[in-house]
Amino acid sequence: MRQNPSFTLADVAEMRRVIEQNPWATIVSAADEGQVASHYVMMLDEDRDDLTIVGHVGRPDDLIHGMGERELLVVFQGPHGYVSPGWYGKDTQAVPTWNYIALHLAGVPEILGDDENLRVLDRLVERFEGRMPDPRLMWERPNDEAFVRRLAAGTVGFRLTPTRVVAKRKLSQNKDAATVENVIAELQGDGVYANPALADEMRRAQDARPGRKA
């Protein structure tokens, strides 16, 4: 990912927030037959305060990616969307663009043992199913231990502490404040490219700009 100083995201707390709110990730690795990619839910390691993530892949994706033997690139993507040049003002020279947030975490993962993999799977189910009005958690009936362990055996859990991180938050930081406010207003509106989540991220980035009053 081409980096631009205007759009660099270096705040670990902000990167953790993006991961927490956007857990669906893409795993990329260089296999013998070429580049391969898979898509899985990832979570921050609850025992760490850095960018260490935990997750799992289904077999045989562990073999396809050479899990534990070669570097993985894990890509997280936050809200993104189209920005019309018409939002910059009638007399402003401009072309269309796309605003977005993306995080690239690279490193060689550590393979989890069976018991730790089960704990991660349990936490994953609890995180998402726990929001349901009548949650069906992993260990609750009608599931029994044999059923849970049989399904878990079809997965390979891992922990990745990245050795390389590239994060980018392209949210019109290179535009003047009035233009940014207009883009935010358009994204919050009811037009064909309305995108409230992206507008919220732009507001967050705008408020974090140097010299911005709290």
Rank of each mutant, 00 (worst) to 15 (best):
L121Q: 11
E33L: 00
K170L: 02
H56N: 00
T97Q: 12
V28C: 07
A153R: 14
Y88V: 12
P109R: 13
R159T: 01
L124W: 06
H65D: 04
L63Y: 05
E129W: 04
D61R: 08
L118C: 00
G86C: 13
V148N: 08
K170Q: 09
L171Y: 11
F158Q: 01
D50L: 01
K90E: 10
T155H: 10
F128R: 03
T161S: 11
P133S: 05
M138T: 09
G154W: 08
V41P: 08
S84K: 05
W139K: 03
E69G: 02
G154A: 14
M43K: 09
Y100L: 06
G34A: 02
V108L: 11
A31W: 05
Q77D: 05
P60N: 06
D32H: 02
P142I: 02
A106W: 05
S38G: 11
D122Q: 05
D62P: 11
V54D: 03
G68I: 02
V74Q: 09
L103G: 11
P162K: 06
P96R: 10
T92Y: 10
E145T: 05
L112M: 15
E116T: 03
A94Q: 15
I27Q: 03
L105D: 10
Q77G: 13
F147V: 03
T52Y: 09
F158V: 00
F158H: 09
Y88L: 15
A146C: 03
D134F: 06
R70P: 06
N99K: 09
Q35P: 07
H56A: 06
V36N: 08
P85E: 12
R123V: 00
L51K: 02
E110W: 10
L137P: 07
R70E: 10
H80P: 04
R70N: 12
